[in-house]
Amino acid sequence: MPNKKDILLEVKNLSVEFGKRKKKFVAVNDVSFHIYKGETFGLVGESGSGKTTIGRAIMRLNESASGDIVFNGKKINGSIDKELDKEITKKIQMIFQDPMASLNERAKVDYIVSEGLYNIKNYKNEEERKEKVEKALLDVGLLPEFLSRFPHEFSGGQRQRIGIARALVMEPDLIIADEPISALDVSIRAQVLNLLSELQKRKNLTYLFIAHDLSVVRFITDRVAVIHKGKIVELAETERLYGNPLHPYTRSLLSAIPIPDPRKEKEKVLKIYDPSCHDYDNAPPKWVEIEPEHFVLGNEKEIEEYRITLMHNQ
């Protein structure tokens, strides 16, 4: 992790809702976290927990019901001026899960990678556009001659590289990677993970890495937040969270990680999370920094228990 801890993105008490009145569904519920410049911040939770919605809210693709999203010191949710809109369209980019579905099958690679540039006219002339696009392709390890080809002519791993190139071409500061490798075969996963790490070092990128695969998240992230049903229940430095999980949901997630070791795997006990273990009607929970940079959601009694657990683990 970088020594100088500048905050690039801050999400404060964010809520996102879908539907109206009786059918209202709170997808993201009072969520707060921040991401330091140059780090990889992980967001884990099962499908439907609100991970993607948070990513889309940062991209301004989902409206926020309340709360603030602050990027480089400027609030970027709600109504913002054209100038700022253009700036963040450039500076925040997203990579999607399914490289097949996310690429327009009838467009050539040249158009696919240039799309963002066209949208905000982020180039002086045709020559500069070509230059930028070729450079982005080279950056992800593809040849410029691929520009005239169509997505279906590529393998899954190559398609995901095209997806990364189309983000890189905008020269972003923050990349939101939404399950970028879950749809890929194991052998290709490693290639894409390595590429993301290498690009991060070379271009000083910051990642919001959204995933449900906890072993991948442990490998790639510096800090991680665990989200359950639209609420972040725990957040800490990755190794700390994996070493000292406190919230029962975090514990159940971690207990499910497959261990590539038959003997350890046989001893493994799956922990099932039952939300009714909390007594939140009588004692509502608070978001507490239980040790430096380690946050957990819990009511007074639970926090007390978590403190004791921490003491025993020290």
Binding site: S197, F219, I220, P260
Partner: peptide
């Protein structure tokens, strides 16, 4: 196959691919 598993990787180093 085994060495490309992130569980067996070393953080900060490239994963075997």
């Amino acid at each position: 196959l085994l060495s490309s598993l992130p569980q067996l990787g070393v953080k900060g180093e490239p994963l075997h691919s």
